[in-house]
Computed example of a mutant assay.
Amino acid sequence: MFGPNWPNNGEIDIIEGVNRQVDNGMSLHTSANCQIPNLASAQLGTLNTGQCDSSFNYNSGCGITAQAGQHTYGSDFNSHGGGVYATEWTSDHIKIWFFPRYAIPHDILRGKPNPNSWSKPQAFFQGSSSCNIDTHFANHNLVFDTTFCGDWAGGVWSSDGVCSEGGTLTCQQFVAGRPEIFRDAFWLVNSVKVYQQKNYPPTDASSPYSNVTTSALNDNISLTSPPPSSTSLKAPGSDAPRSSSWQTSWTTGSSSPTKRAA
């Protein structure tokens, strides 16, 4: 997901990886002054770097690698039938979960997600005085993208001896000369569901979110949602604004999810 005037409105990479990667990478990319703390005990994944500023480290962003062996990406993801990625974006934090096909929470299946009842997320990006979430993230679009070569995949291509065939092929040569390799390089998505935090104390404690957009996908769909920082919500009978938040769940099939894959 990303906002206009990049990187000033931020980027949230929910599913991302390159080449033969097997564990999903999740990252944030922002303008200056966004540093994320390492909350190792509150997440399953491992923080690679807390610096989200896109002008540092060749725009690697602040990244978290999913817990190893959880079938979160690539051929392992495919062979286990895919699963559900869910993202919670609030003024306080951005969290990302992955649920394999056999362990999807019942509240997600019922369309009444309750992130407070779920296990630890794979990624927990905590906002703070070092990174104000509302300042750095706004007006995002949901994007599914497959990029051949590119800055990341192309940049690390030669380090993978299998893909580069011992360094004898560049990424561009491989893509141009091996079209059959990309037979299964597609997204198979059952649904995208967007929920907004209710603007009043929920009577059903298991459902703090109400559905905003549910769409069966086709080849031409474009889904745009307003950000949490753009909506000021008030409880009935109160003049006090309530912060809003968004929770997005993606139900993915057995395709290889990749944003910048070669």
Rank of each mutant, 00 (worst) to 15 (best):
N5K: 15
P7S: 05
E11F: 07
R20D: 10
Q21A: 09
V22E: 09
N24G: 10
L28W: 01
N33G: 10
N38G: 06
A40V: 06
S41H: 11
A42T: 13
L44T: 09
T49E: 15
F56L: 11
Y58D: 13
Y58C: 12
T65P: 06
G74I: 02
G82R: 01
E88M: 07
S91I: 11
H93F: 09
K95P: 04
I96K: 01
P105Y: 02
K112A: 09
N116L: 12
N116Y: 14
A123K: 05
S129K: 12
C131V: 01
T135D: 02
V143D: 05
C149F: 09
V156D: 09
G161Q: 10
G161V: 09
V162D: 14
C163A: 10
E165Q: 15
F174T: 10
E180K: 15
N190E: 12
V192W: 04
K193E: 09
Y195A: 00
N199A: 13
D204L: 03
A205Q: 13
S207M: 06
S210L: 13
S215M: 14
S215N: 15
A216R: 08
A216I: 07
N218Q: 11
N220F: 14
I221E: 13
S225L: 14
S225Q: 12
P228R: 06
P236A: 01
S238N: 03
A240L: 14
P241D: 03
R242W: 08
T248N: 11
S255L: 10
P257K: 00
K259N: 14
R260P: 07
R260I: 07
